[in-house]
Simulated scan of single mutants.
Amino acid sequence: MISLTARWVVVDIEGTLTPTSQVHVTLYDYARPRLGPWIDEHADDAVVADAVAQIRSLGGLSESATTDELVAVLHGWMDADQKIAPLKTLQGLIWQRGYAVGDLTAEFFPDVAKRLREWHAAGLTLAVFSSGSVPGQIAFFSRTTDGDLRDLFTAHFDTVNAGPKREAPSYKAIASALRAVPEETVFLSDVPAELHAAAEAGWQTVGLARPGEPFADADFSPHPAVDSLTDVEIS
């Protein structure tokens, strides 16, 4: 059991709150065939138009690139699991619609919802830092097997409004946005490199070494690590 004293708790999603397969299989497979139609059907949407412009630039495509060419770049990024902003933006919009119409339901590890509710009820300020876009995060928590969990969180952060997850300045930016004291802030993640960055920013850290997940056997030192949120007490 790990016992900490803090006022702010920031959580990762993939591998920490939900199985990695929920993102890499369920959500990716849902978004993949819908990217092209979404681009075509929302061509006049400023957010989509900006994402398309970024895809052309980052993918080395011409202004006359077809939707199929844009999608080929997006699929390549997905296959390589690259956290690139325009991809995350389009995925987030598609997932947002999927949750809204009932096509998607987020599934968490069994210990997650109860613990998050307990921390929230105890007066802790909860926030999310994930590579998935903020709209995608909010949609994710809106429809889960444990109900609508959006009200538990004060703020959401991604690699666009905070920065890379493996760099300390991102955590400093989040602390500033939350008006949080770094020493009284805890970050929970399944990725040691992210915990290193949070610790460099002065945060407390806890690793989630969940059985069967990609980082289950990783070296989390010097961070304490558990395999369930049940083993983390924060007051």
Rank of each mutant, 00 (worst) to 15 (best):
W119T: 10
R7D: 15
A65Q: 02
A49K: 07
G92V: 08
A65W: 01
W203V: 00
D190C: 09
E41Q: 15
R97F: 03
F140M: 13
D68R: 10
L152M: 05
V181G: 00
L17V: 04
G147I: 07
R115S: 11
V25R: 15
L208K: 00
L90P: 05
G98V: 08
D190F: 11
D12C: 09
D12I: 05
T18Y: 06
S228D: 05
P110E: 06
I138Q: 14
A177R: 12
T5Y: 04
A168W: 02
A225K: 04
Q204W: 03
S131H: 07
L93R: 14
S64Q: 13
E14L: 13
G60K: 12
L188P: 00
A49L: 06
D79A: 15
D68E: 14
A199N: 11
S142A: 13
D44N: 12
R166L: 04
A216F: 01
G207S: 05
T16S: 12
E118T: 14
D148P: 00
H223G: 08
A139F: 00
L93P: 02
R115C: 09
H223Y: 04
G60M: 03
I84G: 02
V48S: 07
L4Q: 06
D217M: 11
A218R: 09
W8A: 07
D146Q: 11
A155D: 12
D81E: 11
T20G: 04
V23Y: 07
E118W: 01
A177C: 09
A180H: 08
F187V: 11
E167V: 13
F129Q: 10
V23G: 10
V10P: 01
D50Q: 15
Q96N: 14
